[in-house]
Design a protein around this nucleic acid. Structure first.
Lengths: 191, 191
DNA sequence: TCCTTTATATAACACTTGTTATATTATAGA
DNA sequence: TCTATAATATAACAAGTGTTATATAAAGGA
Protein backbone atom coordinates (compact mmCIF):
# COMPACT_ATOMS: atom_id res chain seq x y z
CA UNK A 1 0.00 0.00 0.00
CA UNK A 2 1.18 3.47 -0.76
CA UNK A 3 1.32 6.29 1.78
CA UNK A 4 -1.92 8.20 2.23
CA UNK A 5 -2.56 11.19 0.00
CA UNK A 6 -1.47 14.55 1.41
CA UNK A 7 -1.98 16.77 -1.61
CA UNK A 8 -5.29 16.41 -3.42
CA UNK A 9 -6.27 17.60 -6.83
CA UNK A 10 -8.53 20.13 -5.17
CA UNK A 11 -5.70 21.40 -2.97
CA UNK A 12 -3.69 22.13 -6.09
CA UNK A 13 -6.54 23.90 -7.84
CA UNK A 14 -7.31 26.00 -4.77
CA UNK A 15 -3.67 26.99 -4.36
CA UNK A 16 -3.51 27.83 -8.06
CA UNK A 17 -6.51 30.13 -7.78
CA UNK A 18 -4.96 31.89 -4.79
CA UNK A 19 -1.68 32.28 -6.63
CA UNK A 20 -3.39 33.80 -9.66
CA UNK A 21 -5.39 36.09 -7.42
CA UNK A 22 -2.20 37.29 -5.74
CA UNK A 23 0.21 37.50 -8.65
CA UNK A 24 -1.77 37.03 -11.83
CA UNK A 25 -1.35 34.27 -14.38
CA UNK A 26 2.39 34.85 -14.51
CA UNK A 27 2.66 33.89 -10.87
CA UNK A 28 1.30 30.40 -11.45
CA UNK A 29 4.53 28.40 -11.71
CA UNK A 30 5.44 24.93 -10.56
CA UNK A 31 7.80 26.07 -7.80
CA UNK A 32 5.52 28.80 -6.49
CA UNK A 33 2.66 26.34 -6.38
CA UNK A 34 4.75 23.74 -4.57
CA UNK A 35 5.86 26.32 -2.04
CA UNK A 36 2.28 27.35 -1.31
CA UNK A 37 1.33 23.71 -0.85
CA UNK A 38 4.40 22.95 1.24
CA UNK A 39 5.41 20.13 -1.00
CA UNK A 40 7.62 19.38 -3.96
CA UNK A 41 6.61 19.91 -7.57
CA UNK A 42 5.90 16.22 -7.97
CA UNK A 43 2.29 16.08 -6.73
CA UNK A 44 1.37 18.62 -9.38
CA UNK A 45 2.48 16.31 -12.15
CA UNK A 46 0.88 13.21 -10.68
CA UNK A 47 -2.44 15.06 -10.59
CA UNK A 48 -2.18 16.90 -13.90
CA UNK A 49 -0.42 15.94 -17.12
CA UNK A 50 1.16 19.40 -17.41
CA UNK A 51 0.83 23.00 -16.31
CA UNK A 52 -1.21 23.97 -19.31
CA UNK A 53 -4.06 21.69 -18.36
CA UNK A 54 -4.02 23.09 -14.85
CA UNK A 55 -4.18 26.61 -16.24
CA UNK A 56 -7.20 25.66 -18.32
CA UNK A 57 -8.93 24.42 -15.20
CA UNK A 58 -8.11 27.67 -13.41
CA UNK A 59 -9.59 29.56 -16.32
CA UNK A 60 -12.80 27.55 -16.19
CA UNK A 61 -12.95 27.95 -12.42
CA UNK A 62 -12.62 31.71 -12.80
CA UNK A 63 -15.48 31.78 -15.25
CA UNK A 64 -17.59 29.63 -12.96
CA UNK A 65 -16.96 32.08 -10.15
CA UNK A 66 -17.97 34.97 -12.37
CA UNK A 67 -21.13 33.20 -13.49
CA UNK A 68 -22.10 32.48 -9.89
CA UNK A 69 -21.61 36.11 -8.97
CA UNK A 70 -23.76 37.23 -11.88
CA UNK A 71 -26.48 34.81 -10.92
CA UNK A 72 -26.38 35.91 -7.29
CA UNK A 73 -26.47 39.57 -8.29
CA UNK A 74 -29.53 39.04 -10.45
CA UNK A 75 -31.25 37.12 -7.68
CA UNK A 76 -30.49 39.65 -4.99
CA UNK A 77 -32.95 42.22 -6.24
CA UNK A 78 -30.55 45.04 -5.46
CA UNK A 79 -30.80 46.14 -9.07
CA UNK A 80 -33.17 45.29 -11.89
CA UNK A 81 -31.92 42.16 -13.68
CA UNK A 82 -30.29 43.83 -16.65
CA UNK A 83 -28.42 46.30 -14.54
CA UNK A 84 -27.56 43.59 -12.04
CA UNK A 85 -25.63 41.67 -14.68
CA UNK A 86 -23.61 44.77 -15.55
CA UNK A 87 -22.89 45.58 -11.94
CA UNK A 88 -21.83 41.98 -11.31
CA UNK A 89 -19.33 42.28 -14.13
CA UNK A 90 -17.98 45.48 -12.62
CA UNK A 91 -17.86 44.12 -9.08
CA UNK A 92 -16.09 41.03 -10.31
CA UNK A 93 -13.44 43.27 -11.85
CA UNK A 94 -13.11 45.15 -8.57
CA UNK A 95 -12.95 42.19 -6.23
CA UNK A 96 -11.16 39.70 -8.46
CA UNK A 97 -9.04 41.88 -10.72
CA UNK A 98 -6.61 39.14 -11.69
CA UNK A 99 -9.38 36.72 -12.53
CA UNK A 100 -11.10 39.45 -14.51
CA UNK A 101 -7.94 40.08 -16.48
CA UNK A 102 -7.63 36.39 -17.18
CA UNK A 103 -11.18 36.18 -18.51
CA UNK A 104 -11.82 39.52 -20.16
CA UNK A 105 -8.58 41.31 -20.89
CA UNK A 106 -6.86 38.52 -22.72
CA UNK A 107 -6.08 38.61 -26.40
CA UNK A 108 -8.87 37.34 -28.61
CA UNK A 109 -7.61 38.23 -32.04
CA UNK A 110 -8.51 35.32 -34.24
CA UNK A 111 -10.67 33.76 -31.51
CA UNK A 112 -14.41 33.50 -31.04
CA UNK A 113 -15.94 36.94 -30.95
CA UNK A 114 -19.34 37.39 -29.36
CA UNK A 115 -20.37 34.07 -27.91
CA UNK A 116 -23.58 35.43 -26.43
CA UNK A 117 -25.46 36.69 -29.49
CA UNK A 118 -28.50 34.68 -28.43
CA UNK A 119 -28.50 36.32 -25.01
CA UNK A 120 -28.03 39.74 -26.59
CA UNK A 121 -30.98 39.23 -28.90
CA UNK A 122 -33.19 38.39 -25.95
CA UNK A 123 -32.13 41.55 -24.14
CA UNK A 124 -32.66 43.66 -27.21
CA UNK A 125 -36.14 42.21 -27.70
CA UNK A 126 -37.13 43.05 -24.13
CA UNK A 127 -35.77 46.56 -24.51
CA UNK A 128 -37.70 47.17 -27.70
CA UNK A 129 -40.96 46.03 -26.26
CA UNK A 130 -40.61 47.81 -22.96
CA UNK A 131 -39.47 51.15 -24.36
CA UNK A 132 -40.93 51.23 -27.83
CA UNK A 133 -37.63 51.33 -29.65
CA UNK A 134 -36.64 50.16 -33.11
CA UNK A 135 -34.39 47.15 -33.33
CA UNK A 136 -31.40 49.31 -34.16
CA UNK A 137 -32.11 51.67 -31.31
CA UNK A 138 -32.42 48.87 -28.80
CA UNK A 139 -29.26 47.25 -30.09
CA UNK A 140 -27.42 50.55 -29.89
CA UNK A 141 -28.62 51.09 -26.34
CA UNK A 142 -27.44 47.65 -25.36
CA UNK A 143 -24.09 48.19 -27.02
CA UNK A 144 -23.45 51.51 -25.31
CA UNK A 145 -24.28 50.11 -21.90
CA UNK A 146 -22.14 47.07 -22.48
CA UNK A 147 -19.20 49.20 -23.59
CA UNK A 148 -19.62 51.37 -20.50
CA UNK A 149 -19.70 48.35 -18.23
CA UNK A 150 -16.64 46.89 -19.86
CA UNK A 151 -14.80 50.21 -19.79
CA UNK A 152 -15.49 50.74 -16.12
CA UNK A 153 -14.55 47.17 -15.26
CA UNK A 154 -11.20 47.45 -17.03
CA UNK A 155 -10.47 50.77 -15.35
CA UNK A 156 -11.13 49.31 -11.94
CA UNK A 157 -9.29 46.05 -12.61
CA UNK A 158 -6.15 47.86 -13.70
CA UNK A 159 -6.33 50.38 -10.87
CA UNK A 160 -6.70 53.17 -13.37
CA UNK A 161 -9.67 54.47 -11.40
CA UNK A 162 -10.66 53.83 -7.85
CA UNK A 163 -13.96 52.08 -7.47
CA UNK A 164 -16.80 54.00 -5.92
CA UNK A 165 -19.94 51.95 -5.65
CA UNK A 166 -22.32 54.75 -6.60
CA UNK A 167 -20.25 56.16 -9.43
CA UNK A 168 -20.61 53.13 -11.67
CA UNK A 169 -24.29 52.80 -10.98
CA UNK A 170 -24.91 56.46 -11.68
CA UNK A 171 -22.97 56.41 -14.91
CA UNK A 172 -25.01 53.50 -16.17
CA UNK A 173 -28.29 55.06 -15.17
CA UNK A 174 -27.48 58.41 -16.73
CA UNK A 175 -26.39 56.82 -19.96
CA UNK A 176 -29.40 54.56 -20.07
CA UNK A 177 -31.94 57.28 -19.44
CA UNK A 178 -30.12 59.74 -21.65
CA UNK A 179 -30.06 57.42 -24.63
CA UNK A 180 -33.58 56.32 -24.02
CA UNK A 181 -34.71 59.93 -24.04
CA UNK A 182 -32.83 60.58 -27.22
CA UNK A 183 -34.36 57.62 -28.98
CA UNK A 184 -37.89 58.14 -27.74
CA UNK A 185 -37.85 61.83 -28.52
CA UNK A 186 -35.87 62.27 -31.70
CA UNK A 187 -36.24 66.04 -31.86
CA UNK A 188 -35.05 66.43 -28.26
CA UNK A 189 -31.68 68.11 -28.56
CA UNK A 190 -30.49 69.20 -31.94
CA UNK A 191 -27.31 71.19 -31.42
CA UNK B 1 40.72 52.88 -34.17
CA UNK B 2 37.81 50.52 -33.65
CA UNK B 3 35.72 49.06 -36.44
CA UNK B 4 32.94 51.35 -37.65
CA UNK B 5 29.58 51.14 -35.92
CA UNK B 6 27.08 48.79 -37.54
CA UNK B 7 24.33 48.82 -34.95
CA UNK B 8 23.22 52.21 -33.70
CA UNK B 9 21.20 53.09 -30.68
CA UNK B 10 18.37 54.05 -33.00
CA UNK B 11 18.54 50.73 -34.81
CA UNK B 12 18.01 48.99 -31.52
CA UNK B 13 15.10 51.18 -30.50
CA UNK B 14 13.43 50.77 -33.88
CA UNK B 15 13.81 47.01 -33.79
CA UNK B 16 12.46 46.99 -30.24
CA UNK B 17 9.37 48.89 -31.30
CA UNK B 18 8.78 46.47 -34.16
CA UNK B 19 9.21 43.52 -31.85
CA UNK B 20 6.70 44.89 -29.35
CA UNK B 21 4.29 45.64 -32.16
CA UNK B 22 4.55 42.07 -33.40
CA UNK B 23 4.68 40.11 -30.18
CA UNK B 24 3.91 42.48 -27.34
CA UNK B 25 6.16 43.38 -24.45
CA UNK B 26 6.86 39.72 -23.75
CA UNK B 27 8.49 39.42 -27.15
CA UNK B 28 11.13 42.00 -26.42
CA UNK B 29 14.03 39.78 -25.36
CA UNK B 30 17.76 40.05 -25.93
CA UNK B 31 17.96 37.15 -28.35
CA UNK B 32 14.90 38.10 -30.35
CA UNK B 33 16.22 41.61 -30.66
CA UNK B 34 19.66 40.41 -31.75
CA UNK B 35 18.08 38.15 -34.34
CA UNK B 36 16.04 41.00 -35.80
CA UNK B 37 19.17 43.16 -35.97
CA UNK B 38 21.28 40.35 -37.41
CA UNK B 39 23.86 40.71 -34.69
CA UNK B 40 24.79 39.26 -31.34
CA UNK B 41 23.31 40.44 -28.06
CA UNK B 42 26.44 42.46 -27.35
CA UNK B 43 25.55 45.71 -29.15
CA UNK B 44 22.42 45.95 -27.02
CA UNK B 45 24.46 46.09 -23.85
CA UNK B 46 27.03 48.50 -25.19
CA UNK B 47 24.20 50.91 -26.07
CA UNK B 48 22.01 50.37 -23.00
CA UNK B 49 22.96 49.47 -19.43
CA UNK B 50 20.25 46.80 -19.30
CA UNK B 51 17.00 45.68 -20.87
CA UNK B 52 14.88 47.54 -18.38
CA UNK B 53 16.18 50.90 -19.52
CA UNK B 54 15.50 49.95 -23.13
CA UNK B 55 11.96 48.99 -22.19
CA UNK B 56 11.45 52.35 -20.55
CA UNK B 57 12.54 54.05 -23.76
CA UNK B 58 10.12 51.90 -25.77
CA UNK B 59 7.37 52.91 -23.38
CA UNK B 60 8.16 56.61 -23.80
CA UNK B 61 8.37 56.17 -27.56
CA UNK B 62 4.96 54.54 -27.60
CA UNK B 63 3.49 57.43 -25.68
CA UNK B 64 5.14 59.90 -28.01
CA UNK B 65 3.57 58.11 -30.96
CA UNK B 66 0.19 58.25 -29.30
CA UNK B 67 0.55 61.94 -28.52
CA UNK B 68 1.49 62.69 -32.12
CA UNK B 69 -1.54 60.83 -33.37
CA UNK B 70 -3.81 62.73 -31.00
CA UNK B 71 -2.34 66.02 -32.12
CA UNK B 72 -2.71 65.11 -35.78
CA UNK B 73 -6.28 63.98 -35.26
CA UNK B 74 -7.21 67.24 -33.57
CA UNK B 75 -5.56 69.22 -36.34
CA UNK B 76 -7.18 67.29 -39.15
CA UNK B 77 -10.62 68.76 -38.62
CA UNK B 78 -12.26 65.44 -39.34
CA UNK B 79 -13.97 65.68 -35.97
CA UNK B 80 -14.47 68.53 -33.51
CA UNK B 81 -11.45 68.69 -31.18
CA UNK B 82 -12.94 66.91 -28.19
CA UNK B 83 -14.24 64.05 -30.23
CA UNK B 84 -11.01 63.94 -32.22
CA UNK B 85 -9.02 63.16 -29.09
CA UNK B 86 -11.34 60.29 -28.27
CA UNK B 87 -11.24 58.93 -31.79
CA UNK B 88 -7.45 59.17 -31.80
CA UNK B 89 -7.34 57.06 -28.65
CA UNK B 90 -9.58 54.49 -30.28
CA UNK B 91 -7.70 54.46 -33.56
CA UNK B 92 -4.43 54.08 -31.71
CA UNK B 93 -5.86 51.00 -30.01
CA UNK B 94 -6.94 49.63 -33.39
CA UNK B 95 -3.75 50.29 -35.31
CA UNK B 96 -1.21 49.79 -32.53
CA UNK B 97 -2.88 47.29 -30.25
CA UNK B 98 0.31 46.16 -28.56
CA UNK B 99 1.47 49.70 -27.90
CA UNK B 100 -1.98 50.52 -26.59
CA UNK B 101 -1.82 47.60 -24.19
CA UNK B 102 1.58 48.73 -23.02
CA UNK B 103 0.34 52.24 -22.29
CA UNK B 104 -3.24 51.81 -21.18
CA UNK B 105 -3.90 48.25 -20.13
CA UNK B 106 -1.03 47.89 -17.71
CA UNK B 107 -1.46 47.54 -14.00
CA UNK B 108 -1.61 50.85 -12.16
CA UNK B 109 -2.58 49.75 -8.69
CA UNK B 110 -0.59 51.89 -6.33
CA UNK B 111 0.61 54.12 -9.17
CA UNK B 112 -0.32 57.62 -10.21
CA UNK B 113 -4.00 57.82 -11.00
CA UNK B 114 -5.31 60.62 -13.19
CA UNK B 115 -2.35 62.61 -14.41
CA UNK B 116 -4.48 64.91 -16.53
CA UNK B 117 -6.80 66.52 -13.99
CA UNK B 118 -5.81 69.94 -15.29
CA UNK B 119 -6.76 68.95 -18.82
CA UNK B 120 -10.02 67.45 -17.61
CA UNK B 121 -10.95 70.62 -15.78
CA UNK B 122 -10.43 72.64 -18.92
CA UNK B 123 -12.68 70.31 -20.90
CA UNK B 124 -15.33 70.39 -18.22
CA UNK B 125 -15.26 74.17 -18.15
CA UNK B 126 -15.79 74.38 -21.91
CA UNK B 127 -18.63 71.89 -21.73
CA UNK B 128 -20.37 73.83 -18.98
CA UNK B 129 -20.19 77.09 -20.81
CA UNK B 130 -21.18 75.73 -24.18
CA UNK B 131 -24.12 73.65 -23.01
CA UNK B 132 -25.26 75.39 -19.87
CA UNK B 133 -24.54 72.48 -17.54
CA UNK B 134 -23.70 72.40 -13.87
CA UNK B 135 -20.17 71.43 -12.92
CA UNK B 136 -21.29 67.97 -11.87
CA UNK B 137 -23.24 67.45 -15.06
CA UNK B 138 -20.33 68.46 -17.23
CA UNK B 139 -17.97 66.27 -15.26
CA UNK B 140 -20.37 63.35 -15.53
CA UNK B 141 -20.70 63.86 -19.26
CA UNK B 142 -16.94 63.91 -19.65
CA UNK B 143 -16.58 60.80 -17.51
CA UNK B 144 -19.16 58.82 -19.46
CA UNK B 145 -17.58 59.69 -22.79
CA UNK B 146 -14.12 58.87 -21.49
CA UNK B 147 -15.28 55.51 -20.18
CA UNK B 148 -16.92 54.77 -23.53
CA UNK B 149 -13.77 55.68 -25.42
CA UNK B 150 -11.64 53.56 -23.14
CA UNK B 151 -14.07 50.65 -23.28
CA UNK B 152 -14.20 50.68 -27.06
CA UNK B 153 -10.43 51.00 -27.32
CA UNK B 154 -9.84 48.01 -25.06
CA UNK B 155 -12.37 45.93 -26.97
CA UNK B 156 -10.67 46.68 -30.26
CA UNK B 157 -7.14 46.24 -28.90
CA UNK B 158 -7.93 42.80 -27.52
CA UNK B 159 -9.83 41.74 -30.60
CA UNK B 160 -12.97 41.35 -28.55
CA UNK B 161 -14.84 43.41 -31.13
CA UNK B 162 -14.00 44.14 -34.69
CA UNK B 163 -13.45 47.79 -35.43
CA UNK B 164 -15.93 49.55 -37.61
CA UNK B 165 -15.06 53.17 -38.17
CA UNK B 166 -18.62 54.45 -37.96
CA UNK B 167 -19.70 52.36 -35.03
CA UNK B 168 -17.40 54.03 -32.53
CA UNK B 169 -18.24 57.48 -33.80
CA UNK B 170 -21.95 56.82 -33.64
CA UNK B 171 -21.79 55.40 -30.14
CA UNK B 172 -20.00 58.47 -28.90
CA UNK B 173 -22.40 60.84 -30.62
CA UNK B 174 -25.48 59.06 -29.34
CA UNK B 175 -24.17 58.98 -25.81
CA UNK B 176 -23.12 62.60 -25.96
CA UNK B 177 -26.42 63.90 -27.29
CA UNK B 178 -28.42 61.57 -25.10
CA UNK B 179 -26.77 62.69 -21.91
CA UNK B 180 -26.84 66.31 -22.96
CA UNK B 181 -30.56 66.03 -23.53
CA UNK B 182 -31.06 64.43 -20.18
CA UNK B 183 -29.10 67.12 -18.39
CA UNK B 184 -30.57 70.06 -20.24
CA UNK B 185 -34.10 68.80 -19.85
CA UNK B 186 -34.31 67.18 -16.45
CA UNK B 187 -37.95 66.20 -16.74
CA UNK B 188 -37.38 64.58 -20.13
CA UNK B 189 -37.84 60.88 -19.58
CA UNK B 190 -38.79 59.70 -16.16
CA UNK B 191 -39.53 56.01 -16.33
C1' DT C 1 7.72 -8.95 10.00
C1' DC C 2 8.31 -8.25 5.42
C1' DC C 3 6.83 -6.78 0.84
C1' DT C 4 4.38 -4.44 -2.65
C1' DT C 5 2.47 -0.25 -4.00
C1' DT C 6 2.66 4.45 -5.00
C1' DA C 7 2.62 9.37 -3.03
C1' DT C 8 6.07 12.32 -2.37
C1' DA C 9 10.97 14.14 -2.39
C1' DT C 10 15.31 14.88 -4.57
C1' DA C 11 17.87 15.74 -8.30
C1' DA C 12 18.66 16.37 -12.78
C1' DC C 13 17.37 17.58 -17.74
C1' DA C 14 16.63 20.89 -21.39
C1' DC C 15 15.40 25.36 -22.38
C1' DT C 16 14.90 30.45 -21.86
C1' DT C 17 15.99 34.62 -19.70
C1' DG C 18 19.43 38.73 -18.64
C1' DT C 19 24.09 39.68 -18.15
C1' DT C 20 29.13 39.42 -18.31
C1' DA C 21 33.95 37.70 -19.41
C1' DT C 22 36.69 36.72 -23.06
C1' DA C 23 38.03 36.56 -27.76
C1' DT C 24 37.91 38.64 -32.63
C1' DT C 25 38.39 41.87 -35.79
C1' DA C 26 37.98 46.07 -38.44
C1' DT C 27 39.74 50.68 -38.62
C1' DA C 28 42.62 54.90 -38.72
C1' DG C 29 46.72 56.92 -37.05
C1' DA C 30 51.68 56.06 -36.03
C1' DT D 1 53.06 47.98 -42.04
C1' DC D 2 52.09 47.82 -37.50
C1' DT D 3 49.37 48.92 -33.46
C1' DA D 4 46.00 50.69 -30.17
C1' DT D 5 41.12 51.08 -29.84
C1' DA D 6 36.64 49.64 -29.28
C1' DA D 7 32.64 47.45 -31.82
C1' DT D 8 31.21 43.26 -32.31
C1' DA D 9 31.05 37.87 -31.68
C1' DT D 10 31.44 33.85 -28.91
C1' DA D 11 30.82 31.59 -24.95
C1' DA D 12 29.69 31.12 -20.50
C1' DC D 13 27.12 32.13 -16.06
C1' DA D 14 23.31 32.29 -12.82
C1' DA D 15 18.59 32.21 -12.27
C1' DG D 16 14.14 30.62 -13.52
C1' DT D 17 10.93 27.78 -16.28
C1' DG D 18 8.44 22.99 -17.26
C1' DT D 19 9.25 18.30 -17.01
C1' DT D 20 11.15 13.71 -15.97
C1' DA D 21 14.20 10.01 -13.86
C1' DT D 22 15.41 8.24 -9.73
C1' DA D 23 15.17 7.67 -4.81
C1' DT D 24 12.61 7.54 -0.46
C1' DA D 25 9.23 6.29 2.50
C1' DA D 26 4.62 5.27 4.35
C1' DA D 27 0.83 2.03 4.78
C1' DG D 28 -1.88 -1.99 4.57
C1' DG D 29 -1.96 -7.01 3.15
C1' DA D 30 0.71 -11.28 3.04
Amino acid sequence: MPPSIKITREDIITASMDLVREQGTEGLTTRALAKKLNCSTQPIFSNFPNMESLKKIVFDKAYELYAERTFASMQSGKYPPYKASGMAYIEFAVEEPQLFKLLYMRDRTGKEKNDDTAESEKIIAVMRERNGLSYDQARQLHTVLWVLVHGLAVMYATGFQEYKADEASEILTDAYLGLLGRFQNKEGVVK
